[in-house]
């Protein structure tokens, strides 16, 4: 079947993309950056962080879960939407415990990078100081639940693919444990034991924040020389760019 091309506008700019691709990717193909924390190229979108919220024909929708269609009028970079995105980011900062000065991910963290991009000097919401713990029981990685934004990237991306029939999806090594306010990421007891060094590193890299960290490698790159220290997060340097390149080579 021939692919249908959709014509639509983003912030009044005429754009085209294949009908059915997500708005976030359609925008990317047209050189437009829509910020996101949970979306990751090549895996099923979760729509969990809401940072990519755009307006389509005047209605709020998440750009990662909405397919682009003919005639859409999409708003991305408007004062109203950027304020909404800032408020989501500020909520994440006040809901978790983000002590950036003591965080190994500082400078490479996408949550922080978006806060920089939006020029957030202090959040508008009160800090919750919720009780969260650090789980350092695994030999290769540790989990700092203070920083987890429950984006489910680790669950969706880090899969065990050993001994599986071709074409099947692989089993998630990470999972949500408990519910509601108590929910937290946990490693599968059995699959977690076999976590390879590569997957451990990948888990750290795809986690948008400093919640999954590989042990004994801290502060290899000094503060000041990290990804977002001098350059704002954009189409050219987000984690998704790398993912996109990998996904399209497949």
């Amino acid at each position: 079947m021939e692919k249908k091309i959709a014509h639509f506008t983003i912030d009044n700019k005429e754009c085209t993309a294949t009908t059915g691709v997500s708005i976030i990717n359609a925008a990317r193909e047209n050189g437009i950056f829509i910020p996101t924390l949970c979306h990751y190229e090549g895996v099923k979108p979760a729509g969990s962080c809401r940072v990519c919220t755009v307006k389509v024909n005047k209605r709020h929708l998440t750009a990662c879960t909405t397919p682009v269609a003919e005639g859409m009028e999409i708003e991305v970079d408007t004062a109203e939407l950027n304020d909404l995105r800032s408020s989501v980011i500020e909520l994440l900062f006040t809901e978790g415990n983000h002590y950036c000065p003591a965080c190994e991910k500082s400078g490479n963290c996408e949550l922080q990078a978006l806060a920089y991009r939006f020029g957030i000097m202090a959040p508008r919401f009160p800090y919750q100081f919720n009780e969260r713990d650090v789980d350092a029981s695994h030999p290769k990685i540790y989990h700092d639940h203070n920083r987890c934004i429950l984006c489910k990237r680790c669950i969706r991306i880090i899969k065990d693919e050993k001994d599986l029939p071709a074409g099947s999806q692989g089993r998630s090594i990470f999972a949500f444990n408990q519910r509601a306010k108590k929910v937290k990421i946990k490693l599968d007891d059995r699959l977690g034991k076999e976590l390879s060094d590569e997957l451990a590193q990948k888990a750290m890299d795809i986690c948008p924040v400093g919640s999954i960290l590989v042990k004994e490698t801290g502060f290899k790159t000094p503060i000041g020389q990290r990804k977002f220290d001098k350059e704002a997060i954009s189409l050219d340097n987000s984690i998704n760019l790398k993912a996109m390149k990998e996904a399209h080579h497949e």
Partner: peptide, 18 residues
């Protein structure tokens, strides 16, 4: 003017908050 992370969000001393 709040200057520094501690003035803005409590900073390292606030690690005792929970």
């Amino acid at each position: 003017v709040s200057f520094g992370e501690c003035a803005i969000m409590g900073g390292l001393p606030a690690m005792r908050n929970d």
